[in-house]
Design a protein around this nucleic acid. Structure first.
Lengths: 122, 122
DNA sequence: CTTTTGCTTCGACATCTGTCGATCCCTTGC
DNA sequence: GCAAGGGATCGACAGATGTCGAAGCAAAAG
Protein backbone atom coordinates (compact mmCIF):
# COMPACT_ATOMS: atom_id res chain seq x y z
CA UNK A 1 0.00 0.00 0.00
CA UNK A 2 1.38 3.39 -0.96
CA UNK A 3 1.82 6.12 1.58
CA UNK A 4 -0.69 8.23 -0.29
CA UNK A 5 -3.28 5.45 -0.10
CA UNK A 6 -2.64 4.94 3.59
CA UNK A 7 -3.00 8.65 4.27
CA UNK A 8 -6.20 8.73 2.28
CA UNK A 9 -7.66 5.95 4.39
CA UNK A 10 -6.72 7.73 7.57
CA UNK A 11 -8.27 10.98 6.44
CA UNK A 12 -11.51 9.26 5.54
CA UNK A 13 -11.64 7.52 8.91
CA UNK A 14 -11.94 4.15 7.22
CA UNK A 15 -9.23 3.16 9.64
CA UNK A 16 -9.62 3.93 13.34
CA UNK A 17 -8.29 7.34 14.31
CA UNK A 18 -5.86 6.55 17.06
CA UNK A 19 -5.94 9.45 19.48
CA UNK A 20 -9.54 10.51 18.96
CA UNK A 21 -12.17 7.77 19.23
CA UNK A 22 -15.06 9.80 17.99
CA UNK A 23 -17.76 9.72 15.45
CA UNK A 24 -18.70 9.70 11.77
CA UNK A 25 -19.78 12.88 10.01
CA UNK A 26 -23.02 14.27 11.40
CA UNK A 27 -24.75 13.72 8.10
CA UNK A 28 -23.68 10.13 7.55
CA UNK A 29 -26.25 8.49 9.79
CA UNK A 30 -28.24 9.40 12.92
CA UNK A 31 -26.01 9.57 15.98
CA UNK A 32 -26.54 7.10 18.78
CA UNK A 33 -27.06 8.40 22.30
CA UNK A 34 -23.48 7.56 23.26
CA UNK A 35 -21.96 9.23 20.20
CA UNK A 36 -24.06 12.30 20.82
CA UNK A 37 -23.03 12.43 24.46
CA UNK A 38 -19.33 12.32 23.63
CA UNK A 39 -19.49 14.72 20.72
CA UNK A 40 -21.76 17.25 22.40
CA UNK A 41 -19.13 17.70 25.10
CA UNK A 42 -16.71 19.17 22.57
CA UNK A 43 -19.25 21.46 20.94
CA UNK A 44 -20.47 22.54 24.34
CA UNK A 45 -16.95 23.53 25.32
CA UNK A 46 -16.81 25.91 22.35
CA UNK A 47 -20.36 27.08 22.96
CA UNK A 48 -19.39 29.88 25.30
CA UNK A 49 -18.09 33.22 23.93
CA UNK A 50 -15.36 33.55 26.53
CA UNK A 51 -14.13 30.01 25.99
CA UNK A 52 -14.21 30.51 22.23
CA UNK A 53 -12.05 33.61 22.57
CA UNK A 54 -9.60 31.80 24.84
CA UNK A 55 -9.43 28.84 22.50
CA UNK A 56 -8.95 31.07 19.48
CA UNK A 57 -6.26 33.02 21.32
CA UNK A 58 -4.32 29.84 22.10
CA UNK A 59 -4.84 28.37 18.64
CA UNK A 60 -3.66 31.48 16.87
CA UNK A 61 -0.78 32.29 19.19
CA UNK A 62 2.68 31.99 17.72
CA UNK A 63 4.26 28.63 18.42
CA UNK A 64 0.85 27.04 18.92
CA UNK A 65 0.88 27.69 22.61
CA UNK A 66 0.19 30.55 24.97
CA UNK A 67 0.77 31.47 28.58
CA UNK A 68 -2.36 32.28 30.54
CA UNK A 69 -1.06 35.80 31.01
CA UNK A 70 -0.95 36.21 27.22
CA UNK A 71 -4.65 35.51 26.73
CA UNK A 72 -6.33 36.72 29.93
CA UNK A 73 -7.67 39.90 28.39
CA UNK A 74 -11.16 38.72 27.56
CA UNK A 75 -13.21 40.86 29.90
CA UNK A 76 -13.70 38.51 32.82
CA UNK A 77 -11.82 38.02 36.08
CA UNK A 78 -8.75 35.87 36.31
CA UNK A 79 -10.47 33.05 38.27
CA UNK A 80 -13.09 32.91 35.55
CA UNK A 81 -10.41 32.61 32.88
CA UNK A 82 -8.90 29.74 34.82
CA UNK A 83 -12.30 28.11 35.15
CA UNK A 84 -12.91 28.23 31.39
CA UNK A 85 -9.45 26.93 30.55
CA UNK A 86 -10.15 24.01 32.83
CA UNK A 87 -13.38 23.29 30.98
CA UNK A 88 -11.54 23.34 27.66
CA UNK A 89 -9.00 20.91 29.08
CA UNK A 90 -11.70 18.58 30.36
CA UNK A 91 -13.27 18.58 26.92
CA UNK A 92 -9.95 17.45 25.49
CA UNK A 93 -9.48 20.58 23.40
CA UNK A 94 -6.47 21.97 25.24
CA UNK A 95 -3.52 20.64 27.19
CA UNK A 96 -1.51 22.53 29.76
CA UNK A 97 2.01 22.43 31.09
CA UNK A 98 3.70 24.43 33.81
CA UNK A 99 7.13 25.84 32.95
CA UNK A 100 8.58 27.77 35.82
CA UNK A 101 6.32 30.60 36.83
CA UNK A 102 3.99 30.31 33.87
CA UNK A 103 1.43 27.80 32.67
CA UNK A 104 1.22 27.23 28.94
CA UNK A 105 -1.84 25.98 27.08
CA UNK A 106 -1.78 24.41 23.65
CA UNK A 107 -4.38 23.07 21.24
CA UNK A 108 -4.87 19.33 20.90
CA UNK A 109 -4.59 19.13 17.10
CA UNK A 110 -6.20 15.74 16.56
CA UNK A 111 -9.37 16.88 18.27
CA UNK A 112 -9.66 19.90 16.02
CA UNK A 113 -9.34 17.61 13.02
CA UNK A 114 -11.97 15.26 14.40
CA UNK A 115 -14.44 18.08 14.83
CA UNK A 116 -13.77 19.17 11.28
CA UNK A 117 -14.61 15.64 10.14
CA UNK A 118 -17.94 15.83 11.94
CA UNK A 119 -18.97 18.82 9.89
CA UNK A 120 -17.73 17.45 6.59
CA UNK A 121 -20.33 17.41 3.86
CA UNK A 122 -21.74 14.05 2.95
CA UNK B 1 -6.86 37.27 -11.85
CA UNK B 2 -7.05 33.52 -12.34
CA UNK B 3 -9.99 31.48 -11.12
CA UNK B 4 -7.71 29.66 -8.73
CA UNK B 5 -6.56 32.94 -7.22
CA UNK B 6 -10.14 34.17 -6.89
CA UNK B 7 -11.22 30.95 -5.22
CA UNK B 8 -8.30 31.17 -2.88
CA UNK B 9 -9.34 34.66 -1.83
CA UNK B 10 -12.88 33.53 -1.19
CA UNK B 11 -11.80 30.56 0.87
CA UNK B 12 -9.62 32.77 3.04
CA UNK B 13 -12.58 35.08 3.70
CA UNK B 14 -10.73 38.03 2.27
CA UNK B 15 -13.96 38.62 0.44
CA UNK B 16 -17.29 38.55 2.31
CA UNK B 17 -19.00 35.18 2.38
CA UNK B 18 -22.42 35.90 1.02
CA UNK B 19 -24.91 33.76 2.91
CA UNK B 20 -22.97 33.31 6.13
CA UNK B 21 -21.49 36.46 7.62
CA UNK B 22 -19.28 34.72 10.10
CA UNK B 23 -15.71 34.42 11.06
CA UNK B 24 -12.20 33.39 10.06
CA UNK B 25 -10.75 30.06 11.16
CA UNK B 26 -10.36 29.83 14.93
CA UNK B 27 -6.60 29.56 14.58
CA UNK B 28 -6.10 32.51 12.25
CA UNK B 29 -6.23 35.25 14.87
CA UNK B 30 -7.87 35.80 18.27
CA UNK B 31 -11.62 36.23 17.98
CA UNK B 32 -13.16 39.54 18.93
CA UNK B 33 -15.99 39.59 21.45
CA UNK B 34 -18.57 40.02 18.70
CA UNK B 35 -17.21 37.20 16.58
CA UNK B 36 -17.12 34.93 19.60
CA UNK B 37 -20.68 35.84 20.52
CA UNK B 38 -22.01 34.98 17.08
CA UNK B 39 -19.98 31.84 16.62
CA UNK B 40 -20.57 30.45 20.10
CA UNK B 41 -24.29 30.44 19.38
CA UNK B 42 -23.81 27.80 16.71
CA UNK B 43 -21.50 25.61 18.76
CA UNK B 44 -23.81 25.94 21.72
CA UNK B 45 -26.70 24.72 19.64
CA UNK B 46 -24.80 21.51 18.90
CA UNK B 47 -23.58 21.26 22.49
CA UNK B 48 -26.53 19.26 23.72
CA UNK B 49 -26.76 15.50 23.12
CA UNK B 50 -30.43 15.55 22.23
CA UNK B 51 -30.02 18.43 19.80
CA UNK B 52 -27.01 16.74 18.25
CA UNK B 53 -29.05 13.59 17.67
CA UNK B 54 -31.90 15.58 16.17
CA UNK B 55 -29.54 17.52 13.93
CA UNK B 56 -27.76 14.36 12.84
CA UNK B 57 -31.10 12.68 12.16
CA UNK B 58 -32.20 15.53 9.90
CA UNK B 59 -28.81 15.85 8.21
CA UNK B 60 -28.61 12.15 7.42
CA UNK B 61 -32.23 11.66 6.42
CA UNK B 62 -32.88 10.86 2.81
CA UNK B 63 -33.70 13.92 0.74
CA UNK B 64 -31.92 16.14 3.23
CA UNK B 65 -35.09 16.77 5.19
CA UNK B 66 -37.16 15.02 7.81
CA UNK B 67 -40.60 15.27 9.32
CA UNK B 68 -40.63 15.74 13.09
CA UNK B 69 -42.41 12.42 13.38
CA UNK B 70 -39.45 10.75 11.67
CA UNK B 71 -36.89 11.88 14.23
CA UNK B 72 -38.80 12.14 17.51
CA UNK B 73 -37.40 8.92 18.91
CA UNK B 74 -34.58 10.38 20.98
CA UNK B 75 -35.79 9.53 24.46
CA UNK B 76 -37.45 12.79 25.47
CA UNK B 77 -41.03 14.02 25.36
CA UNK B 78 -42.60 15.63 22.31
CA UNK B 79 -42.57 19.16 23.76
CA UNK B 80 -38.89 18.78 24.49
CA UNK B 81 -38.18 17.70 20.93
CA UNK B 82 -40.04 20.75 19.70
CA UNK B 83 -38.09 22.95 22.08
CA UNK B 84 -34.75 21.68 20.79
CA UNK B 85 -35.73 21.98 17.15
CA UNK B 86 -36.65 25.59 17.85
CA UNK B 87 -33.22 26.19 19.34
CA UNK B 88 -31.55 24.70 16.28
CA UNK B 89 -33.66 26.97 14.10
CA UNK B 90 -32.77 30.03 16.14
CA UNK B 91 -29.10 29.17 15.76
CA UNK B 92 -29.56 29.14 12.01
CA UNK B 93 -28.71 25.46 11.67
CA UNK B 94 -32.12 24.25 10.55
CA UNK B 95 -35.06 25.61 8.63
CA UNK B 96 -38.62 24.35 8.82
CA UNK B 97 -41.61 24.26 6.56
CA UNK B 98 -45.13 23.01 7.11
CA UNK B 99 -46.58 20.83 4.38
CA UNK B 100 -50.12 19.77 5.21
CA UNK B 101 -50.25 17.93 8.50
CA UNK B 102 -46.49 17.59 8.89
CA UNK B 103 -43.60 19.95 9.54
CA UNK B 104 -40.34 19.25 7.77
CA UNK B 105 -36.92 20.34 8.96
CA UNK B 106 -33.84 20.62 6.78
CA UNK B 107 -30.21 21.53 7.31
CA UNK B 108 -28.97 24.96 6.31
CA UNK B 109 -26.00 23.83 4.20
CA UNK B 110 -24.05 27.10 4.15
CA UNK B 111 -23.90 27.18 7.93
CA UNK B 112 -22.47 23.70 8.09
CA UNK B 113 -19.78 24.76 5.64
CA UNK B 114 -19.03 27.87 7.67
CA UNK B 115 -18.54 25.84 10.82
CA UNK B 116 -16.21 23.54 8.94
CA UNK B 117 -14.18 26.59 7.92
CA UNK B 118 -13.86 27.61 11.55
CA UNK B 119 -12.16 24.36 12.40
CA UNK B 120 -9.90 24.34 9.37
CA UNK B 121 -6.23 23.95 10.16
CA UNK B 122 -4.14 27.04 9.84
C1' DC C 1 12.62 32.97 55.26
C1' DT C 2 9.60 36.36 53.42
C1' DT C 3 7.59 38.59 49.64
C1' DT C 4 5.87 38.77 45.13
C1' DT C 5 3.72 37.06 41.13
C1' DG C 6 1.05 33.82 38.25
C1' DC C 7 -2.46 30.73 38.49
C1' DT C 8 -5.90 27.42 40.67
C1' DT C 9 -9.39 26.25 43.97
C1' DC C 10 -13.27 27.33 46.99
C1' DG C 11 -17.78 29.08 48.26
C1' DA C 12 -21.59 31.73 47.11
C1' DC C 13 -24.98 33.39 44.13
C1' DA C 14 -27.89 34.85 40.19
C1' DT C 15 -29.05 33.25 35.82
C1' DC C 16 -29.70 29.97 32.18
C1' DT C 17 -31.20 25.48 30.52
C1' DG C 18 -33.44 21.02 29.89
C1' DT C 19 -37.37 18.68 31.06
C1' DC C 20 -42.19 17.62 31.68
C1' DG C 21 -47.54 17.78 31.71
C1' DA C 22 -51.19 20.58 30.25
C1' DT C 23 -52.96 23.27 26.85
C1' DC C 24 -53.43 25.42 22.41
C1' DC C 25 -53.17 25.79 17.27
C1' DC C 26 -53.53 24.06 12.65
C1' DT C 27 -54.77 20.78 9.16
C1' DT C 28 -57.27 16.88 7.66
C1' DG C 29 -61.12 13.62 7.60
C1' DC C 30 -65.70 12.64 8.64
C1' DG D 1 -69.34 21.82 12.31
C1' DC D 2 -66.81 18.32 14.92
C1' DA D 3 -63.33 14.97 16.15
C1' DA D 4 -58.49 13.41 15.59
C1' DG D 5 -53.66 13.84 15.17
C1' DG D 6 -49.18 16.36 14.51
C1' DG D 7 -46.77 19.86 16.47
C1' DA D 8 -45.95 24.35 19.07
C1' DT D 9 -46.46 27.08 23.28
C1' DC D 10 -47.02 27.77 28.31
C1' DG D 11 -45.88 27.40 33.16
C1' DA D 12 -43.28 25.23 36.52
C1' DC D 13 -39.22 23.37 38.45
C1' DA D 14 -34.76 21.02 39.46
C1' DG D 15 -30.24 21.12 38.12
C1' DA D 16 -26.34 23.08 35.47
C1' DT D 17 -23.50 27.10 34.38
C1' DG D 18 -20.96 31.60 34.47
C1' DT D 19 -19.37 34.88 37.45
C1' DC D 20 -16.99 36.97 41.28
C1' DG D 21 -14.05 37.79 45.67
C1' DA D 22 -11.36 35.44 48.95
C1' DA D 23 -8.16 32.20 49.93
C1' DG D 24 -4.70 28.74 48.66
C1' DC D 25 -0.52 27.01 46.19
C1' DA D 26 3.76 26.95 43.66
C1' DA D 27 7.81 29.03 41.71
C1' DA D 28 10.93 32.80 41.56
C1' DA D 29 13.00 37.02 43.58
C1' DG D 30 14.70 39.54 47.31
Amino acid sequence: MSNAKALSLLERSEAPVAAVPCCPPLSERPFTAEEAERTARMFKALGDPVRLRLFSAVASHQGGEACVCDISDVGVSQPTVSHHLKKLKEAGLLTSERRGTWVYYRVEPSVLAAMGQLLAVR
